[in-house]
Simulated assay, not measured.
Amino acid sequence: MPRTLLWQRTDVHGAEHVVFDDRRGLTARGVALAAGPVPYECRYELDTSPGWLTTRFDAVAEGGGWQRKLHMERVDGRWRVTASELGDLTAAGQPNALQPGAEDPDLLVDVLDIDLQNSPLTNTLPLRRLGLITGTVEIVAAWVLLPSLTVIANAQTYTALGPGRVRYASGSFTADLELDEDGYVVRYPGLATR
């Protein structure tokens, strides 16, 4: 039977709920809600291989007067990315919003993981794929910005700090994540808790 997790956002009013099966890789269906930077809802589906290599990610983000869709699929070692937009996110209060999707999918050639912005769930993907128990690993993730659904190749570092604790770093940002026994985030300081 599927399992479920629910995170409460601690930085803005919002939450993330996911229904998932992780017996042979991960199959997940979730929804993320937030009051800012503009109020939005993002529904997503995510699939990985049995080894936790991301194979497919679909998302629909919407708010007052706009909707954006994103489809990402890994085929023959390359990402296929398609996106669309209805309405106008910039007119809805996010004037600097980039277009949905990836301007150049070839920049994602080294990407094995999806990182949905402000989603505690997607931090688990590289941890489970790499079996991080000790040491430090560096990855490049496809960072999916919310609410724009813009996709950017993003360098990230995960450092094991001891049982149930991992330091996440990207650029100058760091956060010490608390994890349960299955590697799912329990507490993401400044972002979310469950």
Rank of each mutant, 00 (worst) to 15 (best):
M1R: 11
F57C: 04
A169W: 04
L179I: 08
T4S: 14
P39N: 09
N96Y: 09
Y168N: 05
L26H: 01
L149H: 00
P50W: 12
V111M: 03
F20G: 00
A28V: 09
L121Q: 01
V144M: 06
A102V: 14
R78C: 04
V137Y: 08
P163Q: 14
T27D: 15
G14W: 10
R194P: 12
L121Y: 01
D47E: 07
R3C: 13
E45R: 12
Y168S: 06
V109D: 13
G77M: 11
M1C: 02
D104E: 13
P126E: 03
Y168D: 03
R3I: 13
S119F: 01
V166T: 04
E62D: 14
P163H: 15
T4L: 07
P126I: 01
L177K: 04
R24D: 09
L125R: 00
D88M: 06
L98I: 04
D11G: 14
L130N: 10
Q99M: 09
E181A: 15
T55C: 14
R167F: 04
L86Y: 06
L132A: 01
Q99S: 05
V75R: 15
S172P: 11
G171H: 03
I114G: 07
E62V: 09
L121P: 00
L132N: 01
L70Q: 01
V81Q: 12
R29Y: 13
P189V: 07
T4Q: 10
L86G: 12
